[in-house]
């Protein structure tokens, strides 16, 4: 699975994933060097989407491991089908056949494959997305070292299983806690930040078909302004901008104004405290001012 840098850049554009040159290059290097790619950034900036997009571009299966507190190797790597093994022993005892051997019980038939093992044993290169790795426990993080550096796993009863095809690994983190140096050392690092207004407009246009030019710009400007508010607890993400833009399109809006923003506020500000802050500190007048400053204060939408 080889892809050149210009091909990768073009593919990103084709699937509608708008990113800067540095991001494309980092992804390209991760593919070329066969190293896991660690992506950090605020929620909703397109980290998980990167895994999905890569699977689409490379036409590879996407195998996803969602991390959470308490995740262990039995959920991530493999587990012996304990109940099935016991049943086999019981059946054998009742049939009074020749004694069952230990190797029979610890064979592939009794192995429950979990995402990591699935990715390693895949017949064709797969994209392994290890999502929100910062949510798992540090012990599990240490366990990932072997998989991510040597692309192999050790199962005591079966020995070491090396990858048939080295998977493309994408790890994402919301940076809720500092990840260990060992894990970081094994990965290439990419930080995705909130986009500039121009870039966000491109994303909106790529992802929300049929949106008016003026509405895309105004949406991006309002969101960028909200992100600059230091006291907001949860800043609107790209995913929320897209949801909002889609909602505005379905309302047949062509332009934005303060009243419309206030009425659809639930789509971009998701906590009560943030909405109260908006009403107190910005309000409909503030939005109108922002839009006017950007040179778009003319027409008011009548679509509500």
């Amino acid at each position: 699975m080889t892809i050149t840098l210009p091909e990768l850049r073009k593919s990103f554009e084709q699937v509608g994933y708008i990113c800067d040159e540095s991001t494309v290059l980092t992804v390209f290097l991760a593919l070329e060097l066969q190293k896991p790619l660690m992506i950090e950034g605020a929620p909703g900036v397109g980290k998980t989407e990167m895994g999905k997009v890569l699977s689409e571009i490379l036409k590879a299966d996407l195998i996803r491991l969602q991390c959470y507190e308490g995740l262990d190797e039995t959920k991530a790597l493999y587990e012996w089908n304990y109940q099935r093994q016991l049943l086999r022993i019981q059946i054998n005892r009742n049939l009074e056949e020749e004694q069952i051997r230990e190797e029979d019980l610890f064979s592939g038939d009794y192995l429950l494959e979990r995402p990591l093992l699935k990715a390693i044993q895949a017949e064709e290169t797969a994209v392994l997305l290890i999502d929100e790795v910062d949510k798992c426990d540090p012990e599990f993080e240490a366990f990932l070292f072997e998989v991510l550096s040597d692309f192999q796993v050790s199962i005591p009863e079966l020995g070491t299983i090396a990858a048939r095809n080295i998977p493309v690994v994408v790890l994402t983190s919301n940076n809720e806690r500092e990840l260990s140096d060992g894990l970081k050392r094994r990965c290439l690092y990419l930080y995705l930040d909130f986009p500039e207004v121009e870039k966000e407009v491109k994303i909106i246009k790529a992802r929300v078909p049929g949106i008016a030019d003026s509405l895309a710009w105004e949406t991006a400007r309002v969101v960028a302004n909200l992100r600059r508010q230091k006291d907001l607890r949860k800043k609107p993400s790209i995913a929320e901008t897209l949801d909002w833009a889609r909602a505005l399109v379905s309302l047949n809006c062509k332009r934005l104004d303060g009243k419309l923003v206030a009425n659809t506020l639930n789509l971009i500000l998701k906590t009560r405290a943030d909405q109260q802050y908006f009403n107190r500190e910005i309000g409909t007048e503030g939005i109108n001012r922002i839009l006017k400053q950007s040179g778009n204060g003319g027409e008011i939408c009548k679509c509500q």
């Binding site: 540095s22 290059l25 980092t26 290097l29 950090e40 950034g41 500092e178 290439l188 690092y189 990419l190």
Partner: peptide, 8 residues
């Protein structure tokens, strides 16, 4: 940057 820097 991708290879040497591991935090934002």
């Amino acid at each position: 940057q991708a290879t040497l820097v591991k935090t934002h």
